[in-house]
Design a binder for these strands. Structure first.
Length: 273
DNA sequence: ATATGAGCCTGTATGC
DNA sequence: TGCATACAGGCTCATA
């Protein structure tokens, strides 16, 4: 479900309600997630800790405590993170609940269980988890120059390259199609052939598309909701994703749908070269 | 090294 | 109504 904008919207929604609160308990489902959940360690570490901040790295959400420990949450395809009254009924697929001292709970719900929960003892362990990750797309270091340098001498399709978290974090299947359309570049273009101007447009449009998606509260196709349970609005302004057969808003040609590396891919043959 | 496909799971929509 | 199939926002591993 969530790409960078959705995780960022959840982060911003959660932070004002949980920073400064103290953890009073943790509860788990018995189901396994994509990675093993260290329930014992979390039970020993989290209760009593204060929440010092809510961070984000790519699609990972970070619950930072005043003991230095960081709870790292990834939502996978279908994960949700929300704030609920502790008295609210527990839902199917609620895999983790973090009880707070004001009677609220942060709940992680994930039907497909592609998400994961990890506990880093300190900042160093946390950074180690992210050692392979590329730059944040909204940071200055993410630029056309950077992309061109990373792509030099390689022949991967540009869509796969953009979706590779080692290239840049946070860009998933929806935003990859949207960014490529905004930059007028075909998804299958070999990265070795993209021009300097093309890379500059890709970096710029990545920033624009992701920023606007955050402003719109993310993209809700079927089930994404923010920390308060509300949908986003960016789906209403998607230019290509999910619009196969419909006219391009820019040139009127039919948007095409193909499959690349097993993922639905949308583009306009006329606008994107 | 690099590129694709399978696999991890459940839920929903579609067609027969 | 039931059943089979396809597909879904991510990521990792095996295989070519």
């Amino acid at each position: 479900m969530p790409e960078l904008p959705e995780v960022e919207v959840i982060r911003r929604g959660l932070a004002p309600h949980v920073v400064g609160r103290r953890v009073t308990g943790v509860h788990f489902s018995t189901k396994k997630l994509r990675l093993p959940v260290e329930r014992g360690r979390m039970r020993r570490t989290l209760p009593g800790a204060g929440i010092a901040g809510v961070g984000r790295r790519g699609k990972y959400l970070l619950l930072e405590t005043d003991t230095g420990a960081v709870l790292v949450v990834h939502l996978g395809m279908s994960g949700r993170l929300g704030l609920f009254a502790a008295t609210a009924p527990v839902a199917t697929h609620d895999h983790f609940r973090l009880s707070l001292d004001d009677g609220m709970e942060i709940r992680f719900n994930d039907p497909r269980r592609f998400g994961c929960l990890q506990l880093a003892a300190d900042r160093e362990q946390c950074d180690a988890l992210f050692a392979e990750l590329g730059p944040e797309p909204l940071e200055e270091e993410f630029s056309g120059i950077y992309l061109a340098a990373r792509a030099a001498g390689r022949s991967q399709p540009v869509k796969s390259f953009l979706m590779d978290s080692r290239t840049v974090v946070g860009i998933g299947n929806i935003y990859a199609s949207e960014i490529l359309h905004a930059a007028c570049i075909r998804p299958e273009t070999a990265i070795g052939t993209v021009t300097a101007a093309g890379w500059r447009r890709l970096a710029e449009e990545s920033k624009k598309v992701l920023t606007e998606a955050i402003r719109q509260g993310g993209t809700t196709i079927s089930d994404y909701v923010n920390a308060s349970g509300e949908p986003g609005y960016f789906q209403n302004v998607l230019q290509v994703y999910g619009r196969g057969g419909e006219p391009c808003h820019r040139c009127g040609s039919r948007i095409e749908r193909t499959v690349m590396a097993g993922r639905a891919t949308y583009f306009c043959r006329r606008c994107q070269r």
